[in-house]
Write a protein that binds this DNA or RNA. Structure first.
Lengths: 236, 236
DNA sequence: GTCTATACATAGATAGAC
DNA sequence: GTCTATCTATGTATAGAC
């Protein structure tokens, strides 16, 4: 599956996501016309993601947001009750959207090798489409309150789990060889994460998301299918 | 080289680092007794790193810092002229200290394979010793002004360069096979970075820095010494 | 050298006109 | 629904006593 095919198919629209948020919070949002509300929410969220990418959520003042989104302070507060609520809106609904898409696309393939390739590609394609979101999830997680922080950690572990489950499967089928499945999954995830954390670097070097994916796949494969024992890792 | 051997040998003391800063900025620091100044600078820097780790540098107010470090607001401002100066003090002198140590230890080994193993280990050991610093460098880079941001990017590329130079060398000697040397170096760095960005995860799982290092080395080796062609990556 | 007290700017948040 | 004007808390930074 190429990136282009994927992006045509998923249509992760911020609009859908904001509509979900709106419908779940009708009571606390003062705006009653759904279309107006959703339209402005999209602006608010998009602007927040961009400003946070530049200076961080905490450094972004609501006056910055007001200026950039061309909505007054008063208008902003019709859509959320506090800056913290804006933060958790993005984190919570964003991660939910990501999980939904991952669950839908990941898991395809009829053997562990194909499944792994697919999982890596899908993850990377999605993080490319939603770069600002993924960056935000990671960089702003520490500002969340206890409840949302817990959800955020769970989300991190869930995506790791997708990888480790496939590896586990491959080990059982004697296709993969590896000592510590969870550690392997963790570092594969780390490589994937670099794609959206260091966007500036890869953009500058004109690395395409497809070739990046292929590189990670090659690395994962050569490690997991390496017949030589990794016995030194076993010392513990 | 084990982590214990390394940590005994390097002695990255925050004190040395603060003394350097003090001596370079004698004019602008109002405190004239070096020992008093250095002692308080150590407290200030350490406390800043800890608070920033918890809530981010931007969210940390100088009142927080004053409370935690048990120095009054007035006292704090005897050591720096603005919050921004505190930020760049940590970034600039911290990264300089890191580079100095890396230059000293990396490059040992009499063939590319040994050199690569050594470079990965030293990087990880150092990032373990200076976890708060490395975390700070990455998370707070966006708050720097233009001048220091440039230095920060250079520092990132420099450490990447250490890895790619070794790989390049190995390719020339036909020990390694890889299409895109720079991309390989970049993702190896990404795996190393995860060690200090996700400390909570690895601590919880009781992964030692040595076994983490061994895992990254195994992955890098199996990829770089894999004879199978990575032709698919070559499409560009 | 260190403190307390305070100036001044800006932050988040809200009231009430339109 | 959106705006402007304004409240109050908190932030960075400094002056001046000890």
């Amino acid at each position: 599956m190429t990136f282009q095919e994927f992006s045509k198919e998923v249509m992760v629209s911020v609009e859908v996501l904001c509509r979900d948020y709106y419908r779940e919070n009708r009571e606390s949002i003062r705006i009653k016309k759904e279309d107006v509300a959703v339209k402005n929410l999209v602006t608010i969220v998009t602007t927040t993601l961009n400003l946070s990418y530049k200076k961080g959520f905490d450094a972004m003042s609501l006056r910055d947001l007001s200026r950039e989104s061309k909505l007054s302070m008063g208008a902003l507060y019709s859509y959320f009750n506090s800056k913290e609520e804006l933060l958790s809106l993005i984190q919570y609904h964003g991660q939910a959207a990501v999980e939904k898409i991952l669950r839908e696309y990941v898991g395809r393939g009829n053997n562990p090798l194909k499944k792994l390739q697919n999982a890596i590609r899908i993850h990377l394609y999605l993080s490319e489409l939603m770069q600002r979101w993924f960056y935000f999830f990671f960089m702003e997680a520490k500002n969340l309150n206890k409840k949302y922080k817990k959800l955020s950690v769970e989300s991190e572990l869930m995506t790791e789990r997708i990888i480790t489950d496939i590896i586990e499967d491959g080990v059982t089928q004697k296709i993969f060889t590896v000592d510590d499945v969870r550690l392997a999954g963790s570092v594969i995830k780390a490589m994937m994460q670099d794609w959206y954390l260091k966007q500036w670097k890869y953009r500058e070097r004109k690395v395409s998301v497809e070739s990046y994916a292929q590189c990670i796949i090659d690395i994962a494969e050569s490690y997991l299918t390496n017949k030589r024992s990794h016995s030194r890792t076993n010392k513990k």
